[in-house]
Amino acid sequence: MDIVDEINRVHRELLNGERKVMTMRRRYDAEIEDVWDACTKAERLNRWFLPVTGDLRLGGKYQFEGNAGGEILECEPPRMLKVSWLFGENPGFSEVEVRLSAEDGGTLFELVHSADVPPEFWSGFGPGAAGVGWDLALLGLSLYLSTGAAAPDENTFHQTDEGRRFITASSQGWGRAYEAAGGTPDEVAAAVAATTAFYAPEEERS
């Protein structure tokens, strides 16, 4: 697997209004039922994303270990899942919707993350703060669906040359989406630099 090619397989869009809306689309060479199952079953989510606990049904609450939690707002197997995506003690509005559709023997995967982002945070990092994290998740799903392998270790992936290339390419991809949505060159450059440094600090490379 070409790690940077995985970045190029994803189409990224940003609506840069008062509420930020990030959209990612890519195709997986797996049947829609398999992708749906991988995205909704706790034992499979644990393989490519994070351990999850809770009542995984419509109206139930969930919590990813060390990450977001919320409520399952809509669920239409095997095509659509919408959840609130809340992190921290005082989270604002944040929802994630996953849409799946069968396409040429595979599955078109679309993820839409809508959120109210504090202006000071957005001005520092732009869309890459969340976007790089989602790119890493989609890489994990790709590896899992194609080989059955677990996702790269998030504690060490950024320390490898391969991991750094992936993170840098992801950050730059979100920079292009930011620019297309109206970000100025200075805003985009600062956000890409800050996001890359956050996910892949130079001093931690091995």
Rank of each mutant, 00 (worst) to 15 (best):
D34T: 13
E76Q: 13
D55I: 01
R27C: 04
E71Y: 03
I72H: 07
N67G: 00
N16M: 06
P51N: 03
G54C: 11
C39L: 12
K61Y: 09
G66L: 09
R44A: 08
K41F: 03
N16A: 11
T23F: 01
Y28I: 05
I72Y: 07
E31D: 15
Q63Y: 09
M24Q: 08
V52K: 11
L73H: 04
R47A: 13
E71F: 02
Q63I: 00
L73K: 05
V52D: 12
W48H: 14
R26K: 13
I72W: 08
Y62C: 02
I32H: 07
E13H: 02
E43D: 15
Y62E: 10
D37E: 14
D37L: 15
R19K: 15
T53H: 13
G17C: 06
L15D: 06
D34Y: 00
C75G: 00
N67Y: 11
T53R: 13
R19C: 07
A42H: 09
E76M: 05
V52F: 13
Y62H: 10
M24W: 01
K61P: 06
E13Q: 09
L56H: 04
V21I: 15
N67W: 15
D29K: 14
D34N: 12
G17L: 07
E43V: 00
E71K: 08
C75N: 03
P77L: 02
P78D: 03
G60H: 02
T53V: 15
A38F: 09
L56Q: 07
N46Q: 14
R47I: 09
N67R: 10
N67K: 10
T53F: 14
E13N: 07
P77E: 02
I72S: 09
D55F: 01
G60M: 05
L73T: 04
R57A: 12
R57H: 05
R47M: 14
W36Q: 10
M22N: 05
L58V: 10
P78N: 03
R19Y: 01
D37F: 05
E76G: 00
E65L: 10
E76H: 14
G60L: 05
F49L: 15
L58T: 09
T23H: 01
N46P: 00
G69E: 04
F49Y: 14
I32K: 08
G54P: 12
V35A: 10
T23Y: 01
A68L: 00
L45M: 11
E74K: 10
I72R: 06
D37N: 10
R27D: 14
E31C: 15
V52S: 09
C39D: 04
D55Q: 11
E13C: 05
Y28S: 05
L45I: 05
N67A: 14
E18P: 07
E13F: 06
L56I: 07
E65C: 00
C75F: 01
V52L: 10
L14S: 03
E76N: 14
T23R: 13
G59A: 04
G70R: 02
W48S: 10
E43P: 09
M24K: 06
Y28W: 13
G54T: 04
G66T: 01
D55E: 15
C39T: 02
R57P: 00
N16D: 13
A38W: 08
F64W: 14
I32G: 11
I32V: 15
D55C: 07
T53I: 12
V35P: 15
